[in-house]
């Protein structure tokens, strides 16, 4: 057995321990409560771009359970129960996500701030990142501004054909076909992301409403935007956050729209998390929340170019 040894060297594992204690000190100093929530739940995420692992067998299982792709729903139930600000360092699992920046099992730092809008939370995310990485300049661009400045195309008003033409002038996607968000995702992940956050912390905010996920959607002049943000550093996505949707009816509609997309694409539908919907009907406080990749933060701290280099045992070794 050649792979019994750790993937990361022990120095990096010591840095991981240091990072975890930096994170805990950061939140303890700010009065944010550490929580733990279940990893095996009876519902799965509806998002068609995220696939969970399913645990099918066990004497305690009335039906299969899903390994959580993030602790978001359970944490929102705590918020609805008046927990106040909370954070969690959770293991999350996503099927099919493996590469230099992805391991199917990974560590997420997720936290929620009642009363914060997404701009206030971005400031706190920057403060946490600086506590771990040292002082860095902070840049902020709206999604629209970024596309206009870097690609001279308006991501909200350009036609699908125009977006596809911009992609094809830079990349070879073969006979790929798809909707607006496919071309936007290609431009973002292939052309824009690699340039973001060189020596800085770069926030992108206010996404097209089709990419709002679980963020509030508001009207901003001629378009409506999802109050979502992402943090990039050294060309790598580090965190994704929302000014959270609090309306249970809208939340149910988004889950159902996801499942409709899953049906269309031949993917399995997912049972809705009725616990979350009941909590939201009871009342989720106005809040913002964010999930940050702990392994990727450690990659930045150590200069590692691959996530395997910062994990004790990566997917191939367990």
């Amino acid at each position: 057995m050649e792979h019994w040894q750790p993937a990361a060297d022990l120095g990096i594992l010591r840095q991981r321990a240091g990072l975890l204690s930096t994170i805990r000190r950061f939140f303890s100093d700010r009065g944010v409560l550490e929580v733990e929530t279940p990893q095996l739940c009876s519902h799965g995420i509806t998002d068609p771009a995220i696939e969970p692992f399913i645990v099918a067998d066990g004497a305690a299982l009335a039906r299969p359970r899903f390994l959580q792709t993030s602790p978001e729903y359970a944490m929102k139930r705590l918020l609805a129960a008046q927990s106040g600000p909370i954070y969690q360092i959770a293991r999350a699992f996503r099927d099919g996500e493996a590469g230099a920046r992805h391991n199917p099992e990974f560590s997420l730092l997720e936290w929620y701030r009642p009363g914060f809008d997404h701009h206030e939370l971005m400031r706190e995310v920057a403060a946490l990142a600086e506590a771990c990485l040292g002082a860095r300049q902070v840049e902020k661009y709206s999604y629209r501004q970024l596309f206009l400045e870097r690609l001279a195309v308006d991501p909200f008003t350009a036609s699908v054909a125009e977006l596809e033409a911009v992609v094809r002038s830079h990349l070879d996607p073969g006979d790929m076909a798809g909707e607006r968000d496919l071309w936007l995702d290609l431009l973002m992940s292939h052309l824009l992301e690699p340039q973001l956050g060189a020596g800085t912390l770069c926030f992108i905010y206010d996404y097209p409403d089709s990419q709002a996920a679980l963020a509030q959607v508001v009207s901003a002049g001629d378009v409506s935007v999802g109050q979502r943000f992402e943090l990039y550093a050294e060309g790598m996505e580090l965190a994704n956050g929302y000014c959270e949707l609090t309306d249970a009816t809208q939340q149910r509609q988004r889950f159902e729209r996801d499942n409709a997309l899953r049906r269309e694409r031949g993917q399995p539908e997912r049972p809705l998390d009725e616990y979350l919907l009941a909590a939201m009907a009871h009342g989720l406080p106005n809040c913002s929340g964010v999930a940050l990749g702990v392994d990727r933060l450690l990659m930045l701290m150590t200069g590692a170019s691959s996530i395997q280099d910062v994990l004790a045992f990566d997917w191939q070794r367990c």
Binding site: E97, G99, D185
Partner: peptide, 14 residues
């Protein structure tokens, strides 16, 4: 072969 995937959105292989 590089796996490219935003936290939210389509996964690609470059």
């Amino acid at each position: 072969n590089e796996f490219v995937k935003p936290g939210k959105g389509q996964a690609f292989n470059r």
